[in-house]
């Protein structure tokens, strides 16, 4: 291959990269243990075939922002979108390593986890300010949605003018109340699902294609 041809290829590659619209990045936000990683894994498994990260009943299992690129989701109506899914650590205003000790984790490891969790939350906030194009805000629908951190986070997302879908997760549990979540956030679409069981995720995919498309 001559130098000229190589240079030409390089340039055309550069031009393509320059003009190709960056894939839309959808961040999954919400408090710890809402089921963000469970949903991220389901989306990736349903549309790509592998997983994003480990799920745990111990809070702050996800201590780093994780991105899975180029996932194409097709709705029942046939329209589709290609997105990056960004799984984030749960957002909170407080972290105490004793939380981990209560789950039987040794002190040294608990302190390490707490530090990683604080870094992860800071990272997630940074992503929200800089790199996110749309948000799935996840809530455990068996819990009170009127927590200050939820109101604050949704306010921050709104101020950035990002489209947000609210997911009322864990609708497989008897005391789930998606209605309470709807009343807390009447300004946004709320979709009740079970990320674990897969209830109603088709509806979520459908909404994602039209809302983030």
């Amino acid at each position: 291959m001559t130098f000229l041809v190589r240079t030409k290829r390089k340039i055309s590659g550069l031009l393509k990269a320059l003009f190709k619209k960056r894939t839309c990045r959808i961040g999954i936000y919400g408090p710890p243990n809402a089921g963000k990683t469970t949903l991220a894994n389901r989306i990736v498994r349903d549309w790509v075939g592998d997983a994003v990260g480990p799920v745990s009943e111990v809070p702050h299992e996800t201590r780093r922002v994780r991105r899975k690129e180029d996932i194409t989701i097709t709705g029942q109506n046939g329209s589709s979108i290609t997105i990056d899914i960004v799984d984030t650590p749960g957002v909170t205003t407080k972290i105490d390593y004793n939380e981990f000790i209560e789950f039987g984790i040794e002190k040294e490891e608990a302190v390490k986890r707490a530090r990683e969790a604080t870094e992860g939350v800071a990272e997630a906030m940074h992503w929200l300010r800089e790199d996110i194009d749309g948000v799935i805000y996840m809530l455990d629908s068996t819990l009170d949605p009127f927590q200050q951190v939820n109101i604050m986070l949704v306010g921050i997302i709104e101020s950035r003018k990002l489209p947000v879908l609210i997911v009322a997760n864990k609708n497989d549990l008897p005391d789930a109340s998606p209605a309470r979540i709807k009343s807390a956030f009447p300004q946004h679409p709320v979709i009740a699902i079970s990320g674990l069981e897969g209830n109603n995720v088709e509806e979520l995919y459908e909404q994602m294609t039209s809302y983030f498309g």
């Binding site: 957002v91 909170t92 205003t93 407080k94 972290i95 105490d96 390593y97 302190v111 707490a114 530090r115 604080t118 870094e119 939350v121 800071a122 906030m125 940074h126 929200l128 300010r129 200050q148 109101i151 604050m152 306010g155 921050i156 709104e158 101020s159 950035r160």
Partner: peptide, 28 residues
């Protein structure tokens, strides 16, 4: 303002230390 809240969370996280400051509680 929302952006200030976002930075407040971020900086709070940086100040958390074992057996010391464990974060904030906030109400409006």
């Amino acid at each position: 303002a929302p952006d200030e809240q976002s930075k407040l969370i971020e900086i709070t996280m940086r100040e958390i230390a074992p057996d010391g400051f464990s974060g904030i509680e906030m109400e409006t």
